[in-house]
């Protein structure tokens, strides 16, 4: 049985221009998630979180390496079926446009009716309206149905950390294009770059 998600030697490099090949941004990722899970993703703005999401959904092509969802290389799947494997949610529902050099008939079908990997990109958490509870229950339901859920949050309030602690079983931390994997909430909080990033919010807890 293949892993839910394999990100193998994945590299994405953005260059200054078509002729000036000075790299302006580089993202590297290498991790495997074997089983259904809810994975928290954190990192400063501009660190590469959204690029990583785009590479996982196949809406952005890697410079090197590959992404496999349940064993299928996402970049070899028909563009109109990639969202049946991995889907990227913005604040409201949206699927990015796909570009591919090969016509769809030459590519593989997704063989899935409902997305396997669900990537939630900064969902709007508002403590006033009560929706948080429904969203968290939905993430739990997806996981119970055998899906892999990524929850990307840019914590700027104390309750954002509470949400991540309550619901996420493991974490991915992204900073300046470097992706690290952590087994638990405590584990990610012991990682110095994450501590520095969260800074104030962590001292608030101690207070």
């Amino acid at each position: 049985m293949s892993a839910m998600l394999e990100v193998k030697g994945l590299q994405k490099t953005y260059f200054k221009g078509r002729f000036d090949r000075t790299p302006t941004f580089q993202l590297g990722a290498d991790f495997v998630i074997e089983k259904p899970a809810i994975v928290g993703m954190m990192g400063p703005n501009g660190s590469g979180k959204t690029t990583l999401f785009e590479l996982i959904t196949g809406s952005n092509s890697p410079t090197a390496g590959e992404v496999r969802v349940q064993g299928k290389n996402i970049h070899h799947v028909r563009t109109d079926q990639r969202d049946r494997l991995a889907i990227h949610y913005h604040q409201s529902y949206q699927v990015r446009s796909f570009r591919s050099l090969k016509p769809n008939v030459l590519m593989q079908p997704a063989d899935s009716d409902y997305p396997v990997v669900h990537l939630f990109d900064e969902p709007q958490f508002n403590t006033q309206d009560g929706y948080i509870g429904f969203m968290l229950d939905f993430f739990r339901k997806l996981r119970a149905d055998g899906r892999l859920v990524f929850l990307c949050v840019h914590p700027n309030e104390r309750f954002h950390l509470e949400i991540l602690q309550e619901i996420c079983e493991q974490f991915i931390f992204v900073q300046k294009g470097v992706v690290t994997q952590h087994d638990s909430y405590d584990d990610v909080l012991n990682y110095q770059p994450a501590r520095d990033y969260l800074g104030q919010l962590l001292t608030d807890r101690a207070a």
Partner: peptide, 12 residues
């Protein structure tokens, strides 16, 4: 729906 902990914490 109202028994949800986050709903109870909200204005609702």
């Amino acid at each position: 729906l109202q028994s949800n902990k986050w709903v109870q914490r909200s204005a609702l």
